[in-house]
Amino acid sequence: MSEEVLAIRDLRIEFPELFRTVEAVRGADLSVRRGEIMGLVGESGCGKSMTAMACLGLVPPPGRVSGHVSVDGFEVVGRPDRELLPVRGGLAAMIFQNPGKALNPFFTIGRQLTDVIRLHHRHGERESREVALEALRSVHLPDPEIALGRYPHQLSGGQLQRAMIAMALACEPKVLIADEPTTALDVTIQAQVIVLLRELADARGLTILFITHDLGVVGSLCDRVSVMYAGRVVEVGSVRDVLESPAHPYTRKLLATVPKLGDGHSELAFIPGQVPDMAFPPSGCAFHPRCERASPVCTKSDPDGRDLGAMHRVACHHAHGGGETEAPGTANGAPAR
């Protein structure tokens, strides 16, 4: 088994407010191995982006972080800012949802790339420019020389995301954290970016943590996937296992919301109930108020993860699979009443 590049154990992130505390992440476990693309899936507000920020030690104040996050063997939690600077961009680089906003509008692409490159390698001006150019070429940005002199507003969304990926690659990080990098892009551009990431992973053995709310994207890109709900990872396994035989009721419902072409579904499926208020998460399993399999035990104890197969783990008292037959209404993932 190959080694873990990113290991998150029992990560907790809390935001104390005046009269309550929002628990954004409540004991999440996650592991990304060298060379794989791990998908991290969940509804907005489930804590997936906060988990990503915790990898870089960038949880905004007044957030409190506990547990363990190690990036390439380097423990991040509890470190002062100063010691984290080499991690950020150097060990783990991040790309963001909206490349048009994530790049500084006041500096040229070239300046932003070379600034970052010089931060992590002791390159001179000309050398960093070469590195930047090379990085831009590797993401197939047309006319990289010209692009270097451009300001962000002069490039398209797809070009910007390529430039952003180039910036991430330029420092040769151990892991690329991609926080919904395709969400803000057109569908065709989305596909291009995904093809690019797949290509980079194959060609360079790049390790990627790919955060998204779109299980469809996960299917076409990732090797493994972790499903996050209310600040915990509730199911993890190979893409094939999780997408083809989802064990957690939440994963099943999430899958049902993915529109399938030629499926004849005219109405968009949705998950009934609300994303829980993270200041007061439900007792026991956080999903029980929305779960049709919920039983009294679900309201009392939060299930631990258990193995279903070789690499497939789920945290549910009444997980699907394991020989259990399903009620016909839920076979297709349609929400049961």
Binding site: P86, K101, V116
Partner: peptide
């Protein structure tokens, strides 16, 4: 609160530099 400030921080730019050079320019 701009995304690009977060980006600069995420790429290991020291806070001082981000605040007083990048953000001030904006």
């Amino acid at each position: 609160q701009e995304d690009y400030v977060r980006t600069a921080l995420a790429y290991g730019m020291p806070r001082r530099v981000v605040y007083y050079r990048y953000a001030l320019k904006a």
